[in-house]
Simulated assay, not measured.
Amino acid sequence: MNPTRIATVSASHSVELSEEAVPVPGPGQVLVRIRYCGICATDTHGYASGGFIPKAVFGHEWSGVVAAAGEGVTTVAEGDRVVASVGPACGSCAMCRAGHGEHCDTAFAEANGIGPDAPEHGGFAQHLVVSERRVQRALDELSDEQLGLVEPTAVTFHAVRRAGQRLGDVVVVQGAGPIGLLAAQHARHAGAGVVVVVEPSEARRAAAAAVGFTEVFAPGEAFRARVLELTNGLGADVLYEATGVAALFQPSAELVRRGGTLALLGYPMSGSEVSYGDWQSRELTVIGSLAYTHSDFLGAMRAIADGAVDVAPLITGIIGLDELPALLAKLDGGDTRHAKVLVAPNG
């Protein structure tokens, strides 16, 4: 069999393309032939930092086909299409034993690529061996391209579920990158009365319009005035912060009504200042959200399958493995029109 090719971060702003023998899955493991792996902002951070993120996380939005299954594997079989996932609550970690299965330590470690069975590299590769827990069989209704967006769709499904959004809520989504656009669609699917999207990029505002949003604004007075108009001066019921820009945390909170919810999706790479007294006196509910649970992947796939979430407009490019280093450099420099690019390591 021909060797398999892998892309890994070798140093700051440097990606190494290497070859190795196609690995053989051990007991409880599967060998996945990668079809697509999406490029995430986390990948760009890993590229720029030279290894700030775990090795398994550089290329974590992958999908593919089971090429071989090790001894004892029962949930998938050779030939099954699969998506990257995390396992169900393990039942034996400290969080599970305390009755907090939704925050299982084992699944959280899997999501962050830091568990004892984390692979040595991510899905920017032709093949990947992972624990059976780390894959979930794909819904037949979904195309390969749609499967390439399941992982970020699960991230945002998880966030909207955690926010406890109610029917008819006035929702603001801050940031119209892939995460913001997916969160906005889940919010709409969850019964928001109106979804207001705010985004400085004209191209991203156009992307929001392409998936059916009509209340789309650049930051500024017109946006703030519209939120106040829609809420009789009260402020948003729920605001999903999807930029990760630390300086926006307090201004975001000030757009939320007293007793409303600020849901944090974007991950800041620096510290931030907020007004503790403001958050307390207005009794804000602040919800942090990171990654997902096993069930979020099924919910995400169903949302795509029934058309509630349209991922097709988010895909702005498909490239080969050799093109990855140059594109990461462009993404890191901000010199790109792309929203979500899928890498097809096997062509």
Score class of each variant (00 low, 15 high):
L128H: 00
E132D: 11
R133C: 03
R134C: 12
R134D: 13
V135P: 00
Q136V: 07
R137E: 01
A138I: 04
A138H: 01
A138R: 01
L139H: 02
D140P: 06
D140S: 12
L142N: 00
E145W: 10
E145Q: 12
Q146Y: 03
Q146G: 08
Q146A: 03
L147E: 08
G148E: 05
L149K: 03
L149N: 03
V150T: 09
V150N: 08
V150E: 10
E151L: 04
P152G: 04
T153Y: 04
T153H: 07
A154Y: 06
F157I: 13
F157M: 12
H158L: 01
H158A: 01
A159R: 06
V160P: 09
V160E: 05
R162M: 10
R162Q: 09
A163P: 02
G164Y: 00
G164K: 00
Q165H: 07
Q165I: 00
Q165E: 08
R166H: 10
R166I: 11
L167N: 13
G168L: 00
D169E: 14
V170H: 08
V170A: 07
V172H: 06
Q174E: 10
G175W: 06
A176T: 07
A176E: 04
G177K: 04
L181E: 03
L182S: 10
A183T: 13
A184L: 09
A184I: 06
A184C: 05
Q185C: 05
H186T: 14
A187S: 12
R188Q: 13
R188C: 12
H189K: 15
H189I: 15
A190F: 15
A190V: 14
G193F: 09
G193M: 08
V194P: 05
V194R: 11
V195E: 14
V195S: 14
V197E: 00
V197C: 04
V198C: 11
V198R: 08
E199R: 05
E199M: 02
S201L: 15
E202H: 11
A203W: 10
R204V: 00
R205L: 01
A206Y: 04
A208V: 01
A208L: 04
A209T: 08
A209K: 07
A210W: 04
G212D: 09
F213P: 02
F213G: 07
F217E: 07
A218T: 06
A218D: 12
P219I: 03
A222I: 02
A222W: 04
R224V: 14
R224K: 15
R226E: 11
R226N: 06
R226P: 05
